[in-house]
Write a protein that binds this DNA or RNA. Sequence first.
DNA 1: CGCGCGATTGAGTAATTTCAAATCTAGTGG
DNA 2: CCACTAGATTTGAAATTACTCAATCGCGCG
Lengths: 187, 187
Amino acid sequence: MHETLRSHLEEIIDLTDQEFAFVLTQFKMGEFEKGDFIFQNGDLIKYAYFIVSGLVKLVYHDESANEHIVSFAMENWWESDFNAFFTQSKATFSLKCLEGTHVCCLSLEGYSILSEELPKMRLFWLQKSNGGFVSSQRRILSLLTKSPKERYEQFLKEYPSLGQRISKTQIAAYLGVSRETLSRLYS
Amino acid sequence: MHETLRSHLEEIIDLTDQEFAFVLTQFKMGEFEKGDFIFQNGDLIKYAYFIVSGLVKLVYHDESANEHIVSFAMENWWESDFNAFFTQSKATFSLKCLEGTHVCCLSLEGYSILSEELPKMRLFWLQKSNGGFVSSQRRILSLLTKSPKERYEQFLKEYPSLGQRISKTQIAAYLGVSRETLSRLYS
DNA sequence: CGCGCGATTGAGTAATTTCAAATCTAGTGG
DNA sequence: CCACTAGATTTGAAATTACTCAATCGCGCG
C-alpha cells in the first residue's frame, strides 16, 4: 500500500528509507467506496490525492447539470482540483469514485514541507506537472482535430485497460459526444 | 528588453543583480519577423522561448494540412513544443510569428543549470508549469461544454487584447470551428 | 484603379444532438 | 430456475448545428 507510493516516487527520484518515512508523515490515508465523492463542487480543497488503487473521475457539472468528465484517474495517478488545491479555494469540479478507491492525501502544507525538506521532491512535482501539461495539450489537440470515432479509438489505444473498466456513457462524457453517437460509431 | 524577463521572473521569485546576471548567461536573444517560423514540425527542439515582445502561434498541421492552433503566446509568455523540448526530440508543432517578435531562448541545458544553481528557479518553473496545466484544463472544459459562440466570448473576455491583434480566421482555428461559422455567430 | 486578403453570405450537405422507445444485462428474491 | 428490476446500451426519427464550397463584399495599399 505504501509501497505503491514509494515505487511511484522512485520512478523519478531515489529515496532512502528515512526519506520515504519522512514523506509518509505528510500523507493521510483514505478509503472510499464506489459512488462516493472524494470532494464536491464548492468544497474547500485541502488535498491532492495519490490513487493507490481504484478508479475515479473528475467531473464538471454545467449550468444545465450535464456532467462532463475532465479526466479519469486510476492507480498511480495524482488527482485533485489542482487549481483549487494550489490556491486553497473552492472546487469547480467534483471527484467521484467509479470503483472502491484507496488514496494517499497530501495537504498543500505537506506539499510545501516536502518541497523544502527534500529538494528532489520539487523535481518530482515538476515532472508530474510537465507531464500533465503535455497530456492536456494532447487532449486539446484531439478535441480540435479528430472526429468522435478517432477520439474514441485514440482513447482505447492510450488507455486500453480503461476501455474495460468504464461504461460507454462515461467515456462519451469524456470524449465530448453524446452516448448515442458513441454507440452508433460501429453500426 | 532584459528587464522584461527580469520583472517576469520577479513576479514569482526575488533575484539579486548577480543572480539575474547569471540567469542571463543561460539565454540567447533572438528576433523574428512577422511570418517567420521560430521552429517547424520535425525540427529538433533545442529551446524554450520567452516572448519579450510580439505574438506567435503554436500550430499543428493534420494529415489534410489543416492548421489547428494549440495556443497563442504574447509578451511575457513562454512557448515551445514542450514535449519535444523536454525530451530533446522532434517537434510535432510549429511556432510561427504573427507579428515581429523578440524572444529569449533557453536551452534544456540552461534550464537544468539554472535549476541546479538557483534552486528557486525550480519553484519558478513549477509555478509556470502548474499554471499551464490549469489553463489547459480550462480550455479542455471549454471545448467539452461550450458552444462556438460561448467559446468565442470566453476567449474575448479572457484575452481582450488578442481580439484586436488576431484575425478571426486564426481565432476560429484556435476555437475549433470553421471561420464561416465564427463569422455567422452574430447574424 | 486594381490587387490581395480577410470577412461575410448563400445554399446544399453531412454530422451530431435530442427525445423516445426498445433491447440487453447483471443481480435479486421468490 | 424463473421473474423482476435497475442500469446501460442500442435504435429510430426528427431537428439542429456546423461544415464545405462558391461567390461576394470591404478595405488598405501600391
